[in-house]
Computed example of a mutant assay.
Amino acid sequence: MVLTKISEMLNQFSPANLKIANYILGNYSEIGFISVEDLSNHSGVSKASVVRFARIVGYSGFDELKKAIQSELRKKLSPYEKIAITDLDRRSLQKQLEELSRNEINNLRKTLDSLTPEEAIKWVEAIIEAQHIYLAGFGATRFVISLLSYALATFQSKPLWMLTGSVSDFSPRVKHMESKDLLIIMTFPPYSKEFEYVVSVARKKGTKILLACDSPQCPVFPYAYSAVICESNSLLLNNSFVGPIALIQIISNFLLLREKKTGMKEMKEIWNVELEGYKYIAKEGGEEE
């Protein structure tokens, strides 16, 4: 986050840069919508100093810094507020499509940048080594992580448990967690208390945790064995799930490549079961002979 980056660098700034930093930290919600001239006047420094400040904190210029802040501010807005302030509806259909597509491409690019080979290997090896696998997702995220559950069930045979709903729904399952098990969790703002509770149980049991989330500011980020940041910026909705779905696709394929023989065996068994199922359904009335 821009705020975090600036806060961590406060002791390194020159007097001019410190003035800019303090103004940004104190008026963060305004910065995404003001000009270089405005920030220069409010901070009491030159426009050139503002541009240099943006570069010092890791951006090509003030425009890129401002866009990063705008992106973070949008994440804090409700869908109603996003719709209320957008000007997309005043643009042509072609421009709307271009802007929406550009946003999702950016989500995908940032997610893939976060997924290093080292982290991918951690995920694959943790899945292979696990005795049982628990997959947790709440709200809309439960539909996304169910894709991973389906993929894992397709080419491996170890038990899978979906954790979703209320505490009373998943407590009979989490009580069986052990240190040899694995918890895979996906969570995006607004974070639910249920997922924090699931993670607290996993920590007590010594269960390894794989996390897909939107930011290091996620409440359980420090407790993950491996965490992949999935950019989830949506121009109009709470979250975009392009990044998380891409992560699921890549990890599933990585796993299949690592466990090729096992995957082929499991998928062949599924194919045979499906053939038997279709034969059964094709029978008149679906009755046994």
Rank of each mutant, 00 (worst) to 15 (best):
S157N: 15
V201F: 04
D87H: 12
M264Q: 14
I128K: 15
S35G: 13
T116H: 03
S215H: 09
K193R: 07
F195H: 00
R102S: 14
V228R: 03
E259R: 15
K82H: 04
I31D: 03
L235G: 04
Y134F: 11
V174G: 02
L275H: 08
P216Y: 11
I105K: 13
L147V: 13
E178D: 10
K47H: 13
R90K: 13
G26T: 12
P189H: 03
K260P: 10
S114I: 09
V199G: 01
S149N: 12
K260F: 14
M177H: 03
V45I: 14
A84T: 09
L275R: 10
K205F: 07
L257G: 07
N238L: 09
S146T: 08
I83E: 01
I56W: 00
D181E: 06
F195L: 00
V2C: 08
L235Y: 06
V2G: 03
M1K: 11
G243W: 03
F155C: 15
S215W: 10
L160Y: 05
K82Q: 02
Q217W: 07
Y197H: 07
S49F: 09
D169W: 00
Y23Q: 11
E30T: 09
I133K: 04
S114N: 11
Y150A: 15
L163C: 05
G285V: 13
Y223H: 06
T164R: 03
L257Q: 11
L88P: 06
Y134N: 00
I229P: 03
K110F: 11
Q156R: 13
L88S: 12
Q12T: 09
L275I: 08
R55H: 10
S101Q: 14
L211C: 01
T154C: 13
A224Q: 04
N11H: 15
F188I: 02
G285T: 12
R102D: 15
E269K: 08
L235P: 01
L236A: 05
Y191G: 00
L247D: 01
A21N: 10
V242M: 12
E125P: 09
A16G: 10
E37I: 14
E129S: 15
I69L: 04
G32H: 01
F241W: 07
